[in-house]
Amino acid sequence: MSAFFDQYGFLMVAIVQQALLGMSLWYPLMAGQLSLASIGFYSLGGYIAAIMGTNPWFAPWREALGPAIYPLQWLIALIVSALIGLAVGIPALRLRGIYLALATIAFVQVLNVLVLITDVTGGAVGLFGIPQPFVSRLGYIWFFGPLLVLALIFSARLTRTVAGRSFMAIRDDELAAQAMGISTTFEKVRAFVIGCALAGVTGAMSAPFLNTWNARQSSFDASVACLAYVLIGGARSIWGPLLGAALLVALPEVLRPLKDARLIMNGVVLVVACIYLPQGLAGLLASLRRPGKEAGHA
């Protein structure tokens, strides 16, 4: 039993961590906006935590605060991410169409170049030796677990509030939503900023989890992976990002005994899921529970 947790503890926490990144894309998607910014805010949050954890300038803070430095890192990551999210989101979201996707790709690129040329971020090597609040990787579930539960409760509540319903109205028909008196730009920015803040906090929790932080954390591949969690898991259910991350993060590890064939199997599963599960895993589960009713939508 303990051997199982030794071997898979990191993986289980990694699933929750990646699910949170998926959720951060889920909010803008709820308002019909395709964003690839999450990985950028994840990186930003990670740097905030890594710098506060390792930079000598913050040494008195670390001594004075003890473990309370971690929540402070999350809070700062949240505020900075939300502010930058506003700055990126407002100009991009006043337009209709794919401009948010483009602006967010550009944002991640700019951030990466900035990180590489700045000394305080450690350049290409990055920052390492980040202080550890837990001895085992599994301990980090106390960081990510409560955040995921909070995010899920928040999402479930959101779908029942005016804000959430406005998001969905915009997703289904932006013109109609505007005609109904919804301020579409305001709502789209709101959905986007919620996602940015969540990604930032997830990043701040991830820097100690991975022991190190560098520019490779925000690669384009990683932003596409986050999007895949939502799309494979199901963009219309609050459980989608979690299901998608569970499948996509665990699969290559569970298939490890297959050696070289594991990534081929991984690819096959993805293709099959894309073709046969247009509503994602969450859609599949829903249609299993209510046979017939969902089949028409699928």
Binding site: D6, Q7, Y8, G9, F10, L11, A14, R137, L210, N211, T212, R216, Q217, E253, R256
Partner: peptide, 10 residues
């Protein structure tokens, strides 16, 4: 990085 941690733990 995550892949390296997984491989090490295995």
């Amino acid at each position: 990085e995550a892949g390296a941690i997984n491989a090490f733990q295995n």
